[in-house]
């Protein structure tokens, strides 16, 4: 018996190294493809944020540009002990939280309604997504002057029809006004994502459930809702991120009065009306911290999806 030791032939070795080189080449080419996007993103978003942190440590008022001094954490002390921060944080939480919850519930409701087969479903869906397409600044103006105005607004006219007295929405109920506006705008977005979820449900399983005698409500509760969970989570995450940054309706409708001064509006006021750059930067950093706080809670879920979606 002869034992043969497998010695790779020269060609095999050559091929293997070639494959290795090819792989390395490919990897390098791939990195070259990602790099421009990465660099662009870092320069325009991360670097300015680092500079914001630096600004937040300065004593810098635009009225006295010659007196810029390093102030360590003085601005943060002002932020946390001052009278503005807590109400502003509260306003942010109330406005973002209510709008997310309301638009999510309404979005789910509309998604279920528009998932049914009925006459003109396509048109109904088209009309329903439109509020999300409308420029928020234009929507805020139309709501403020044409719908909610105390004298000529349609909503007040409708209230009058049912025997209620007119409401000066912007000044009497500013928080409600902003939440209403944001809910109107974000319900279609939530609906779109949830509708995609409903449509990805397997029809056969639902039919089987109905054959087995499960009523529509039970089927919804035990099969559809669990299936939708992932979609609800993502809709909540994306909705929260976008709504946390909502600025347009507040700037246009209430100017931050009556409990609508959210963190992003407060920052704007400090920097561009109050002219205190250092303090505004500190507010900016705190705003980011709050956003990250909200996002991390939601991100854990997202990350799960990420891992699942990351492999192919």
């Amino acid at each position: 018996m002869t034992t043969t030791i497998e010695v790779p032939t020269a060609t095999q070795v050559h091929r293997a190294t070639q494959a290795g080189i090819a792989h390395k080449k490919k990897a390098r080419a791939s990195r070259a493809l990602v790099l421009p996007a990465l660099v662009f993103s870092v320069i325009l978003t991360q670097v300015p944020f680092l500079v914001t942190i630096y600004f937040s440590l300065l004593n810098w008022n635009q009225l006295r540009p010659s007196e810029i001094k390093f102030a360590w954490f003085k601005n943060y002390a002002v932020v946390f002990t001052g009278p503005d921060f807590l109400p502003s944080l509260f306003a942010t939480v109330v406005i973002t939280g209510s709008s997310v919850i309301l638009s999510l519930l309404l979005g789910l409701f509309f998604a279920v309604l528009l998932d049914r087969k009925f006459v003109g479903r396509g048109l109904a869906r088209t009309l329903m997504i439109t509020p999300f397409l409308v420029m928020p600044a234009a929507a805020a103006l139309i709501w403020k002057w044409s719908l909610l105005d105390v004298n000529v607004g349609m909503v007040n006219w409708a209230l009058h029809l049912v025997g209620l007295s007119a409401i000066a929405w912007n000044t009497d109920l500013p928080v409600v006004t902003i939440i209403m506006m944001l809910t109107w705008q974000y319900t279609p977005f939530m609906m779109l994502i949830l509708l995609a979820g409903l449509q990805s449900q397997s029809r056969e399983v639902l039919e089987a459930a109905s054959v087995d005698g499960a009523g529509p409500w039970r089927t919804f509760q035990w099969m559809t809702l669990p299936h939708l969970r992932q979609y609800i989570e993502i809709a909540t995450l994306l909705g929260s991120i976008m709504l946390l940054q909502a600025f347009d309706p507040i700037a246009i409708m209430t100017k931050g009065t009556g409990g609508t001064k959210t963190l992003s509006y407060l920052l704007y006021e400090r920097a561009f009306i109050g002219l205190d750059v250092g303090q505004a930067a500190a507010f900016g950093v705190v705003t980011v911290a709050v956003t990250i706080g909200v996002a991390t809670i939601a991100l854990r879920t997202l990350f799960k999806v990420f891992i699942n979606g990351g492999e192919r």
């Binding site: 600004f55 600025f247 920097a271 900016g284 705003t287 980011v288 996002a295």
Partner: peptide, 17 residues
């Protein structure tokens, strides 16, 4: 993850610089 995290950074974070 990096890309999506930049989206979480509000405009407030970079507007001043």
């Amino acid at each position: 993850f990096f890309f999506i995290s930049t989206r979480f950074l509000p405009a407030a974070a970079s507007i001043l610089p």
